[in-house]
């Protein structure tokens, strides 16, 4: 089942499926490039370490911890991975 990252509960493992990109953009928005540069790429398996419903989401990606604001997290589409 697909959902956006801001809705994933803590301690779940998910796979990045896609990014929500506004229709009228020619280039992908800067913050998505930045996310990708930090390792949040399609197909990447990430661990959601912290998501309390308010404030940023903390994830573990490529061995580093990243805090992502809720607004940006809601642009990342993920899919739960069964261990």
């Amino acid at each position: 089942m697909y959902e956006t990252l801001d809705r994933v509960k803590a301690n779940r493992i998910v796979k990045v499926v896609d990014f929500v990109v506004p229709k009228h953009h020619i280039h992908i928005p800067q913050y998505i490039v930045r996310l990708q540069e930090m390792g949040v790429l399609k197909g990447e398996i990430i661990e959601v370490r912290r998501n309390t419903g308010i404030g940023p989401i903390e994830i573990n990606v490529k061995g580093t911890k990243l805090a992502i604001g809720r607004g940006i997290a809601s642009k990342i589409i993920v899919e739960e991975v069964n261990e």
């Binding site: 911890k65 992502i68 604001g69």
Partner: peptide, 9 residues
């Protein structure tokens, strides 16, 4: 537009 947070912990 406001920038969102992307920060290494």
């Amino acid at each position: 537009t406001p920038t969102g947070l992307i920060m290494e912990m």
